[in-house]
Amino acid sequence: MKETTEKKLNVLMRVGKLDQDSFDFLTDVDEYFDTNYYSNDNEMLLIHLSVAINRMFEKESVDKMPDELWKQISDKPEYKVAKSVWNDLKSKAPVDFTEEETKYILLHILNILRRNNDD
């Protein structure tokens, strides 16, 4: 995990927005992408996941993703891979994510996959 990302996540822990189980999950997610996709810049996904986890604990909801955006995401060639990756990871999560949270998570995963395909 990048040092700057780790510092941000530690701040979230200090202010009570992230617990140790959640931090461990985020570390696992980061290691998964580093190992399987050689991606070491996963900050957007990790920060989004940390905020999403907190929303789930607080029983808050995220804004609905616009249908047009979701259609663009789900039509991308990497979408099935992104969904498979998330299915591998979500079982380790400290919370169950709503469908709307999952859409945004898939967007971040898709961005990592597409960025790595461009390298």
Rank of each mutant, 00 (worst) to 15 (best):
D24N: 15
K17Y: 07
P66E: 15
D21H: 15
V29Q: 04
K17E: 06
L18Q: 07
S61P: 06
N10V: 02
L9N: 03
L89C: 04
H108I: 07
K7S: 14
A52F: 05
E68A: 08
K92S: 12
L12W: 01
D19T: 08
I53G: 01
L113C: 06
V81W: 00
K2M: 11
L12P: 00
E6Y: 12
D34F: 05
I112H: 00
T27H: 13
H48W: 04
D119T: 01
E68Q: 13
L113A: 04
D119E: 10
Y104T: 10
Y104C: 13
N10P: 01
N117D: 11
V95L: 06
K17V: 00
D88A: 08
Y37T: 02
S61N: 14
D21I: 12
L107W: 05
K64G: 08
A82W: 04
K17W: 03
N36D: 01
Y79W: 08
T27S: 14
F33T: 03
D88E: 10
Y38F: 07
R55Q: 12
A52D: 04
N36P: 00
N117W: 00
K71R: 15
A82E: 06
E78S: 11
D28N: 12
M44N: 12
P66Q: 14
L106V: 10
F97M: 07
P66W: 15
I73H: 01
W86H: 05
L45M: 09
R115I: 02
E58M: 09
R55C: 07
N87I: 05
L107S: 08
T35S: 05
L26E: 05
K90H: 07
M44R: 09
L26R: 06
T5C: 12
S61W: 10
K71N: 15
E43Q: 15
S61C: 11
H48M: 05
R14W: 02
E3G: 11
D118V: 00
Q72W: 07
W70Q: 13
T27A: 10
K17G: 02
Y38M: 05
N54H: 09
K71W: 11
Y37L: 02
T102C: 09
T4K: 09
R114G: 01
D67H: 12
F57M: 05
R114E: 13
F57L: 13
E58H: 06
N116A: 00
K80A: 04
T102Y: 08
Q72P: 05
E6H: 12
K90D: 06
E78P: 03
A93R: 01
K59D: 15
D75E: 15
E31P: 00
K103E: 14
N10W: 01
